[in-house]
């Protein structure tokens, strides 16, 4: 499976993503934001970081960069596009995903492990995933997902909520919500479920000695579903 990771000025999880993808057998390439086109890919990843220093709004400047037109065309033709953290923020700013990531409710930068519940498995990312709750890592200042009531209803009706913050046992409530996101939302899909944006970093959970392996499950699952 061929993948491309897009690098923006200020991206800082691009190399971690590259390491993770290659570890599980993706043929990965790095693509600079100023390039006109993306090499043939089965998956495009927008990595985490602070593209353009989070100026104006997180992800807003990156969402207008040269390469983004190719990303949008790829997504609209059904290609898999994954945005992690700042990548999720960029995807909402392009309009590929609904809503916006606002500043965390208590104005703090959050860096910790969290549990997320997989809400939908009828898609190429989570289909046949063995677990329902994953332990992943978050590190963000703007992860407080918000959208209008109509958009939320449409996300729920179409099963577009991908993952939600929860406890170890899968309980979702205010206590297990780290940043104030509505409905504990940690990640969502577009309507066709080929575009996934999420705040947690699976690429930080790929080594059982350093962190945990639930990120490994995530990447292996994408590969398995591609075969």
């Amino acid at each position: 499976m061929r993948s491309s990771v897009i690098i923006f000025p200020g991206s800082n999880c691009d190399r971690d993503m590259d390491v993770a993808l290659k570890k599980f057998g993706f043929k990965n390439q790095m693509v600079w934001h100023n390039d006109q086109s993306i090499p043939k890919s089965d998956l495009i990843v927008l990595p985490g970081g602070f593209s353009y220093g989070d100026y104006l709004r997180c992800g807003s400047i990156a969402s207008k960069s040269k390469i983004i037109k190719s990303v949008i065309d790829f997504a609209n033709s059904g290609g898999l596009v994954l945005g992690i953290c700042n990548g999720f923020q960029i995807l909402t700013e392009t309009g590929l995903l609904n809503g916006i990531l606002q500043q965390n409710k208590f104005l703090n930068f959050i860096c910790c492990n969290v549990f997320v519940k997989v809400k939908d498995k009828q898609n190429k990312y989570f289909k046949d995933l063995k677990k329902d709750v994953l332990e992943l890592h978050i590190a963000h200042n703007e992860g407080n997902y918000f959208c209008s009531d109509d958009e939320l209803k449409s996300l729920e009706d179409n099963n577009q909520i991908a993952v939600t913050y929860c406890g170890k046992d899968g309980t979702e409530n205010e206590k297990t919500n780290p940043n104030g996101a509505i409905k504990n939302i940690a990640g969502i899909f577009n309507k066709n479920k080929n575009v996934l944006g999420m705040m947690p970093h699976p690429e930080r959970m790929i080594d059982k000695y350093l962190s945990g392996e639930d990120g490994s499950l995530f990447f292996k699952n994408i590969l398995d579903n591609f075969k």
């Binding site: 104006l56 807003s60 700013e93 916006i100 606002q102 918000f146 959208c147 209008s148």
Partner: peptide, 8 residues
């Protein structure tokens, strides 16, 4: 197109 995000 850029300066405001009309969602919020």
């Amino acid at each position: 197109k850029l300066l405001a995000n009309l969602v919020i």
